[in-house]
Simulated assay, not measured.
Amino acid sequence: MNPGAVAGFEYFASTKLGKQYLLEHAEKGFSLEGSVVKDLNIVASEEGSASANGIDITFGLGNDVGSAAGAYTSSYVIGLSSCNQKINRS
């Protein structure tokens, strides 16, 4: 686990924009409780609008073959190919 990446993600999620983004893409019942940002607690009481339209997201850390380590997000529409955004930390 990369503590810096976890902290960065939690700081993003704790912003108004970050919380809105996550809830728009969340399935009903999704929850996120911070380990770095102690007062972070997001709960989706209903399915988000993007999720309801078949748009899902994933977040991850690691190496892609042939690339540097970094964080990435991936979003896709069910039935279509994914569109990945890779963020490398230097």
Rank of each mutant, 00 (worst) to 15 (best):
L22Y: 04
K16G: 13
K38L: 02
F59G: 09
G8M: 06
S45K: 03
S74F: 02
Y11N: 10
K16Y: 11
F9L: 07
A44I: 04
R89I: 05
N63D: 05
G8S: 04
E46I: 09
S51N: 09
V6E: 05
E46Q: 12
G60C: 08
A44M: 03
S67L: 11
L32R: 06
V77T: 12
K16I: 05
L61S: 13
A26N: 02
A52K: 15
I78D: 02
Y21V: 01
H25N: 08
K28E: 15
I57F: 15
S51D: 06
S49R: 02
N41G: 04
A68S: 13
L80H: 14
N88H: 14
C83F: 12
A68D: 14
K28Y: 07
E33N: 00
E46V: 12
L61P: 09
L80P: 03
D64Q: 11
N41M: 10
K38I: 03
A7H: 04
V77I: 14
Y76D: 04
G18T: 01
F9N: 03
A69E: 06
F59A: 12
T58E: 10
G54K: 08
A50D: 02
G60K: 01
L32Y: 13
A68I: 15
I87P: 02
S75G: 00
T73F: 02
I42E: 09
G79T: 07
G60V: 11
D39Y: 11
A7T: 00
D64V: 14
N84H: 15
K16A: 12
G29D: 01
G54W: 04
D39F: 12
A71H: 00
S45A: 10
G79D: 09
N84C: 11
V6D: 02
D64A: 12
L22Q: 05
I78T: 03
L17V: 13
R89G: 01
Y21Q: 03
L17G: 09
N84V: 15
I55M: 10
A7I: 00
K19S: 06
E46N: 09
L40Q: 01
K19V: 02
A68N: 13
G79F: 13
E33Q: 01
G18Y: 09
T15I: 03
D64H: 10
G66F: 15
Q85L: 03
V36M: 12
N63T: 13
E33L: 00
G70P: 06
C83E: 08
V6N: 06
A52F: 08
Y72P: 03
T58F: 08
Y76A: 14
H25L: 06
K86P: 00
A50F: 01
Y72K: 03
G62Y: 04
Y76P: 04
K16F: 08
